[in-house]
Design a protein around this nucleic acid. Structure first.
Lengths: 195, 195
DNA sequence: GGCTAATCTTGTCAATGACAAGATTCCGGG
DNA sequence: CCCGGAATCTTGTCATTGACAAGATTAGCC
């Protein structure tokens, strides 16, 4: 495998990303330090800069990856033809809770280079997918105005996920699965439509 | 009570808070530096630490103040007897957009001392107020389950506000007032015709 | 006037982000 | 096989920052 002091790490980029994701998930994005990540990967303090240029560059890469993971999940949803608006929201909530670090960074544009081409491309891709997923839905599942339905679903899911992540719903949730609690809430919210 | 009287500045605590709020509103919480705030207030680099102990202490103070501002707004809502669940959400959205820096910090517990007594007290106060506002509402305005109604309203308003703040709805909003767009969305969401 | 505590200053230290310049290794063309 | 450019990583450096310690100044109060 790798020699103890190999000059080349093998995949430093991935190693730094993973270390960053771990730190962010436990201590938030403010706790990351390029030098600390370098230490964890066993490389010199300036090595990460070669892959990400910047601290903001590292976070940009995480935001891009997050958008791609979300896009993958949405693509899955598109393939299941029984997917309704509520399922889409549940999927969004689950994504936020299963990839907390990505989610955290994605919606914090002050942390990264929001004009980076990679980022706007990934963002555009997931945006289009969200729109398509809602538009392809039968009208009795999403109401007459697709754009409004998307806005409502996105707001509810995004807000719920953020509140859960912030620990604001601990008492309300108990030990129940957040995704299912959201489903129950959404059913009331969106009227009586079943799944 | 007498205001905290600083001999050299007048009210350094307030000055630092205001400077911090301005920086956060324009560049995010990651951009604040105690030394920069001291510079803006015209004091030495270690002066702010006396009032806030810590960088996290400063942000804790902002989170407390934010909770109090929100509590004030909710108290206003309690006084108006025609307030419905949707109006409550509109009020929440407006608070988020009128006090962006406070809002930003409030829901970012990794930035401050979340166990600080002042903070948990202020938090508890607004939490109780939110609950009371929903509970005192006539049942035809909020549905049978008050807790669920609160969860739904909070999620939708919180998510909407966060998405707006992140610039994710710029195209959707156009030049319309976000509060009114939210009202329109909420009407569809909660299935009510008027208020 | 004098005492005490709050407020502010100066000085210092380790950690950090960013950059520059050099060392090492990889890879493809000849 | 070899060579040269490019990618990768290292070492060295600098200004900035957060945190702390110790001292100076002033306010409020007896």
């Amino acid at each position: 495998m790798v020699h103890i002091m190999a000059y080349h790490h093998g995949d430093l980029r991935r190693a730094v990303l993973d270390a960053a994701l771990e730190v962010i998930a436990t201590s938030g994005p403010g706790a990351i330090s390029l030098r600390d990540l370098a230490r964890r990967a066993g490389v010199s303090h300036a090595a990460p800069a070669h892959h990400f240029k910047d601290k903001a560059g590292l976070l940009t890469a995480i935001a891009v990856e997050g958008n791609e993971l979300l896009a993958d999940s949405l693509t899955e949803a598109l393939d299941e033809d029984r997917t309704g608006l509520i399922d889409l929201g549940v999927r969004y909530v689950r994504f936020a809770l299963e990839h907390p670090a990505h989610f955290e960074v994605m919606y914090r544009p002050d942390l990264y280079h929001r004009r980076a081409p990679e980022l706007v491309a990934a963002r555009e891709r997931t945006g289009k997918l969200m729109r398509r997923t809602v538009e392809l839905m039968p009208e009795e599942k999403r109401g007459p105005d697709a754009a409004l339905a998307q806005l409502a679903a996105w707001s509810a899911a995004h807000g719920f996920a953020n509140l859960v992540r912030g620990g604001n719903l601990d008492r309300t949730l108990g030990d129940r699965d957040p995704g299912e609690v959201f489903r129950g809430m959404a059913r009331v919210l969106f009227g009586q439509s079943d799944d």
